[in-house]
Amino acid sequence: MTGHLRSWPIVLALSVASAPLVLMYVYLFVDTVTNAPPGSFVPNEFTLEHWSFLWHTPRGRPSIWRVTLNSLLFATSTAALVVVISSMAGYVLSRLNVPARGFFLAGVMVLHAFPAITLIVAIFLVLQVVGLYNTLIGVILVKAAIDMPLGIWLMKGFYDTVPWEIEMAGIQDGASRFTVWRKLVLPQVKPGIFALALFAFLLGWGEFILPQVLAPGGDVQVLSVYLASLIADDNNFDMALFKSVGLFYMAPVLILFFFFQGHLMNIYGGGTKG
């Protein structure tokens, strides 16, 4: 529709505006495998020394592999929890004639908009009282609870697209409501479940403030907290090391995003916070 209007000035303007971002991400790669003379940003040698953190654990810090495992545990567990709980609750809100259904729907909307991070002081104290402070389980539960309203809302949307007739047919065929959900409806929303799982995983993988406040201990440290504490340590300033750890940390995100971009952009646009 705009074919007769030239687009290169727009492309140029956008390129200029995007330059700082591109620069930052390009140098995230470059700096991890090269050295540059002081005061210059043109690399003059290739090196793998910045990656030594992979096999050599600095004193007073947990091993990177331990931390990575924690991150993996944290992100997959929250994703699994979010997916399981949301696919159950989302179905109820989409399809079942429960008492106070309108109230539940409105509740999910309010929770979705409500910034749960404001509750962190209380959650911090509650976890201390129940003994889940500084445990992965505690922070996993909290993260899952915070991501859950969005998950429920997304799953409800996916269920809404499944034709009612399929459920009606299932009931006529003699299946219980549970069987209808489990055997007939769930398979229809598989792509949605996959997208939500991916999304929740990435949210968990990137999460910083919750583990920072609720599980800062060395045994349960996740990559975000580990990297933040590396950066915050004024005595050992090594930007190339930070970036290498950063790239190591971000690689799964980039890979997943590269392969499942389409899935993710929709969900991100569909109403996350930030």
């Binding site: 034709p163 007739e165 399929i166 009606m168 047919a169 299932g170 009931i171 006529q172 003699g174 299946a175 219980s176 007939l184 398979p187 229809q188």
Partner: peptide
């Protein structure tokens, strides 16, 4: 309940289970 009525229904959209 529907499940015990043993009624066969053919819907306008057929409602076959796609999977």
């Amino acid at each position: 309940p529907s499940q015990e009525r043993n009624v066969g229904v053919v819907f306008q959209s057929y409602a076959l289970y796609p999977h």
